[in-house]
Computed example of a mutant assay.
Amino acid sequence: MTGGEVAVLGAGLHPWGKQGRPFWEYGVAAARAALADAGLGWREIGSIVGADTVRGGYPGYVAGATFAKALGWQGARVTSVYAACASGAQAIDTARAQILAGLADVVLVVGADAAPKGFFRPAGGDRPDDPDWLRFRILGATNPAYFGLYARRRMAVHGDTPDDFGRVKVKNAAMGALNPYARYRKRVTAREVAASPVVADPLRLLDICATSDGGAALVLAGMEFARRRGVTDPVRIRAVSTVTPRYPSTVLDLPDIATDSAAAVVPGAVTFRESVARAAYEEAGLGPEDLSLAEVYDLSTALELQWYEDLGLCGPGEAAKLLRTGATAAGGRIPVNVSGGLASFGEAVPAQAIAQVCELTWQLRGTAGARQVAGARVGMSANQGLFGHGSAVMLVR
C-alpha cells in the first residue's frame, strides 16, 4: 500500500542531558524551535499530537493536552499516543494521517521525557500480567541484561567480537561530538571502550546508551499548505511503518516467544525489525540501495549491527564486516547514526524517534553542518518499542 506524502516544515530539539526539569518544559522548548524553523506561529497550528511518557505522572499520559496547555490553549485538535520507544513515530504517523484525511493542514508533533537515573523500570506498581514487569521481577533482566544476551547471540551466530561493538561506539561518539544537541560530545577511542566497566558481559559501560532528558518536535503539513507558504521543495515524509512482527502462525502460544520488542525467531518467521523495514520500503517504493543515510535505534552497540542487516544494508551476519569497511561511518557508502545516535544522546523515550526525523530533515536540507552527508536525498529512521511496537520513517528530498 502506498501512502501520501506530507511536508516537514519545521524541526526542533531541546538538548539532551540530565537537567532536572519537568518533561513538558523540554517539549515546549522543542516545539517553539520547530515552529520558528517553520516560520509559523502556534495559533496557526490546527492539531497537536503528543508522544506520551509514563514517567511524567498523569500529565505524561495526556502529553498532547499537556503541551497544548503549556503553549496556550487556542482550540487545536489534540491527540496523545503511547507506544513505548516507538511513541514518537506513532505520533508522526497519527499527524500524517490527520493531514492526509483532511482533518488539519498543519500539525505539531512533540515528544519529551525526564528519565530516571539508572535503569528504566516499569511504571505503575506491580503488574503481574505485564511481561515486561515479569522479566524485571522474576528474571532480574534489566535492559542491559538482555542487551548483553543479544550481543552474545551475535558473537555465537555471526562471529562478532567485542572489538566490533567498540567500533560502533567510536564511530557514533565521533559524530555526537559534532552535534550541539547531544548529551555526550566527546570522542572516545577503542581502548577507552575496552577499559570501561563491564555492565552485562560482553557489553561495557560505553557499549550501552544512558537514560536522558530531552525533547523533540516537528511541524508537518500537507503539500498544498506548503506550496501556499512558498515552500516548493520541502523534505517529505513518504512512508511511516508501525507494523507488528510476522509469524508463520498467529497463535502466540510458543514457549520461547520473547517478552519484549526483540522477539524470538521461530522457523519461517520474519524478525520484528525486518517486518518494520520491509513495510516502510514497500510503502515508499524504495529499497536499501536508495538510502543516503539511516538513523537507527542503538540501545547497545550490538543492536546497531543488527539493524544493518534488518534494514538490508548488508546480508545476514555481514554487519561487522560492513562496519569494518567504514561504509557506515561519516563519508562512507551508507552513514548510520550521523547524529551520534543514542550512544551520544541517551534515551528520552517519547522524543527519540522524533529526534531521528529531525536529524534526517536537516541532512536532507543540507543544513547539518559538520555532520552533513554529502548529497543526501533519502533517509530512513528505525526504532522499536515493547510488545511488537516498531517504527520506520522514510524521508525524501
Rank of each mutant, 00 (worst) to 15 (best):
Val188Gln: 07
Gly379Leu: 05
Gly215Gln: 11
Leu293Lys: 06
Ala156Val: 08
Tyr281Ile: 07
Phe119Ile: 12
Ile208Thr: 10
Ala173Asn: 10
Pro144Lys: 11
Glu309Gly: 06
Val170Thr: 08
Ala156Gln: 12
Tyr184Trp: 10
Ala280Ser: 07
Glu283Pro: 02
Leu100Pro: 01
Tyr58Gly: 02
Asp253Ile: 03
Arg43Val: 07
Tyr247Met: 09
Tyr150Asp: 07
Ala279Pro: 00
Val270Tyr: 15
Trp16Pro: 02
Thr79His: 10
Cys314Gln: 14
Ser300Val: 10
Ala182Cys: 10
Asp130Thr: 08
Arg246Lys: 13
Cys358Gly: 07
Thr271Glu: 09
Gly72Asn: 05
Gly111Tyr: 02
Ala210Met: 14
Ala348Gln: 05
Gly12Leu: 09
Ala97Val: 05
Gln363Leu: 00
Ala65Gln: 11
Thr259His: 15
Gly64Pro: 05
Asp160Lys: 09
Ser381Asp: 03
Val270His: 07
Met155Glu: 05
Ala195Glu: 14
Gly215Asn: 05
Ala141Arg: 13
Phe272Met: 13
Tyr184Gln: 07
Leu203Cys: 02
Gln384Pro: 03
Leu293Phe: 05
Ala174Ile: 01
Met1Lys: 12
Val78His: 09
Lys69Ala: 14
Val198Asn: 14
Tyr308Lys: 11
Ala239Asn: 12
Thr361Phe: 08
Arg397Asn: 05
Pro234Cys: 15
Leu311Met: 04
Ala319Leu: 00
Asp260Lys: 03
Ala221Arg: 12
Cys209Met: 14
Pro131Met: 15
Val110Asn: 01
Leu286Thr: 03
Val349Leu: 15
Ala264His: 01
Ala31Glu: 08
Leu35Arg: 03
Ile334Cys: 04
Leu134Ser: 15
Thr211Pro: 01
Thr211Trp: 06
Trp42Lys: 00
Asn337Asp: 00
Met394Thr: 10
Gln98Lys: 13
Val338Ile: 14
Val338Tyr: 05
Gly230Ile: 04
Phe147Leu: 01
Glu25Asn: 04
Phe165Pro: 00
Gly148Leu: 02
Ala115Thr: 06
Gly369Leu: 10
Gly215Thr: 07
Ile92Met: 08
Leu395Trp: 00
Ala327Thr: 00
Gly46Asn: 04
Asp163Val: 13
Gly285Tyr: 03
Gly27Ala: 06
Ala221Ile: 04
Ala190Val: 05
Arg246His: 12
Val219Glu: 04
Tyr181Lys: 13
Gln90Phe: 01
Ala294Pro: 01
Pro15Val: 14
Ile48Met: 14
Glu192Ile: 07
Gln356Asp: 00
Ala294Ile: 09
Ala177Thr: 09
Leu360Pro: 06
Val106Cys: 15
Arg21Gln: 11
Asp298Pro: 04
Trp24Val: 15
Ala277Tyr: 09
Leu299Met: 10
Ala343Ile: 06
Arg333Lys: 14
Asp260Val: 09
Arg228His: 13
Ala258Leu: 04
Arg187Trp: 03
Ile138Ala: 14
Asn172Ser: 08
Gly50Cys: 12
Met155Trp: 04
Val276Ala: 15
Asp164Asn: 11
Leu71Glu: 04
Gln306Tyr: 09
Glu274Met: 14
Asp130Asn: 12
Gly375Thr: 01
Ala277Asn: 04
Leu322Thr: 02
Thr232Tyr: 08
Trp42Leu: 08
Ala33Gly: 11
